[in-house]
């Protein structure tokens, strides 16, 4: 990305939502003490997202997509259990915090 043409820098800030901070926390735990995946795997997975991902997805959306792919690749999760759990979570709505 370094050196490509780009426009003005948007300095608007947003506060990270709790779920975004949890994605960050999961990555720190999985790449640090748990040794389940590496930061370079996360980066490789982000680079492998579709070309428009940078514009259509938010920062932590790219992280959770890549992190989840790495867990599937490693066999930590199966597509079946993930699909079933996502359906449950969708049907239930946001968890109480």
């Amino acid at each position: 990305m370094g050196g490509l043409e780009a426009g003005a820098i948007d300095r608007e800030m947003h506060d990270y939502a709790l779920w975004e901070r949890r994605v960050d926390a999961l990555m720190m735990l999985l790449s640090g003490p748990r040794r389940i995946m590496t930061v370079d795997q996360l980066r490789k997975g982000i680079e492998a997202l579709p070309p428009d991902a940078y514009d259509s997805m938010t920062y932590y959306e790219r992280w959770i997509a890549s992190l989840t792919n790495a867990l599937l690749d490693a066999g930590v999760l199966t597509t079946e259990e993930l699909g079933a759990r996502m359906a449950e979570v969708s049907a239930r709505g946001p968890e109480a915090e």
Binding site: A17, W19, R22, V23, L26, M57, T58, Y60, E61, I64, A65, L67, T68, L71, L77, L82, R85, M86, E88, V89, S90, P94, E95
Partner: peptide, 10 residues
Amino acid sequence: YRVMEEAVRS
């Protein structure tokens, strides 16, 4: 993706 985070975490 928020659903994905919650599913993966749980």
